[in-house]
Amino acid sequence: MTATVQIGNVTKHYGRIAAVTDVSFELGEGEMVALIGHNGAGKTTLMKLMLGLIRPTGGSILVLGDNPAAGQFAGRRHLGYLPENVSFDAALTGRETQTFYARLKRERVAKALQLLDAVGLGAAASRRVGTYSKGMRQRLGLAQALIGRPQVLLLDEPTTGLDPELRQTFYEVIQRLAAEGTTVLLSSHALTELEERAGRVIIMHRGIKVADGSIESLRKLARLPTRIRLKVAGLAPGEVPSWLPASAPRRRLNGHIVEIDAAPEQKIELLRCATASGTALEDLDIVPPNLDELYAHFLRRSEAKP
């Protein structure tokens, strides 16, 4: 997989404040990567460094083979960027705004205007941006970020203000771009959305990269318990199945449901016991640690380091 973005030991200071400290990673063609962290963790700073809007204090950055901080950054034409807070000329219409950005990127205006329909702004294209709601301005920001089918797409809180239907449409668009080879780096606090879609997660904390990998690899590293819910017929009040090891953390929920927190190495054995014991199982749910839990785990681990 060809690397489109290469970040090597990058540091960015604002006076005495370290916004980013010794961060390294690569992004490849067709990757959809979630960049997560609390406010002030360094996510937006990293995106601005990739765009060449600010220069690193130390380290190296290559985007599409160019150094963004070098002045002449030919690759910028092939980048799409949606900032967290979009701002457009309120006097222009949606169509005029999109036309302006298409000409700025030297892309075909007709194709750029088609993106207004893709983000649900076709009917409002002739209205002035000053009359748009926050969600509509966010959609316009998405449309300009997608002009020219960028090779690298940087999205900072892209679904803020979008209703559920448009969020689904948005993810369909960027997943299609990723399938066609676009590198997508997406920062968001909506971790549930990212868990279902991102192939890789980078976790930032106070300017430091504390985790990087697929959801599955982060689960293996964290070794958090998997929640197993069993609906068992014929249990008396307070009773738990006899086959459950005494060491397995468990609790009774309502009715006949027993919930077990199983360590990674216990999962298969517990399920084998449940099916081999003759227990009348009516239902079974296996809930692995979600991205919210993984995020909290790696932040706690980072805080605990000296």
Rank of each mutant, 00 (worst) to 15 (best):
F170T: 12
P237G: 12
T275V: 13
K105A: 08
A69W: 13
A211Y: 06
A3G: 03
N67V: 09
E84P: 05
T44H: 11
W243Q: 12
R128M: 00
V20H: 04
I286R: 03
L191S: 12
T182F: 00
L113G: 05
A280P: 03
A236K: 14
F100S: 08
A233F: 01
A110V: 05
G161A: 13
P164T: 08
E239V: 00
I286C: 06
L186M: 13
I54S: 14
Q266A: 15
T275F: 00
V258F: 02
R149E: 08
R128N: 04
I208Q: 15
Y295H: 14
R108V: 14
A102L: 05
I208W: 06
A179D: 10
T99H: 09
Q6A: 14
G120N: 04
A3W: 04
E26P: 01
L230I: 07
L140A: 08
A110N: 06
T160A: 13
G122L: 03
L284F: 01
H78K: 15
I228K: 04
S302C: 02
G75K: 07
R197F: 02
S217P: 09
A102R: 03
L166Y: 04
I147H: 06
K231M: 01
M50T: 13
A274H: 06
R200P: 11
S214F: 03
A179V: 02
S302P: 02
K305W: 01
Y171P: 05
G213M: 05
V86Y: 03
H205A: 06
V258A: 07
S24G: 07
A125Y: 07
L27E: 10
Q266G: 00
S187K: 01
P264R: 04
D285F: 00
G37T: 07
I202W: 02
I174A: 09
N85D: 14
A91G: 07
E172F: 00
G58Q: 11
S60I: 02
W243T: 10
I61Q: 12
H38P: 15
E96F: 02
Q151K: 14
L27A: 15
E29L: 03
I268Q: 06
F25H: 08
P289K: 06
K134G: 07
D117R: 01
Y295T: 14
G42N: 09
K134H: 15
A178H: 09
H297E: 13
P158C: 02
N85T: 15
V119I: 11
L270E: 09
S277G: 14
R223M: 05
A276R: 05
I147A: 07
G207W: 10
L299V: 15
I17Y: 13
P306R: 12
I7Q: 06
R167Q: 15
R176E: 12
L218F: 12
E195S: 12
G213I: 07
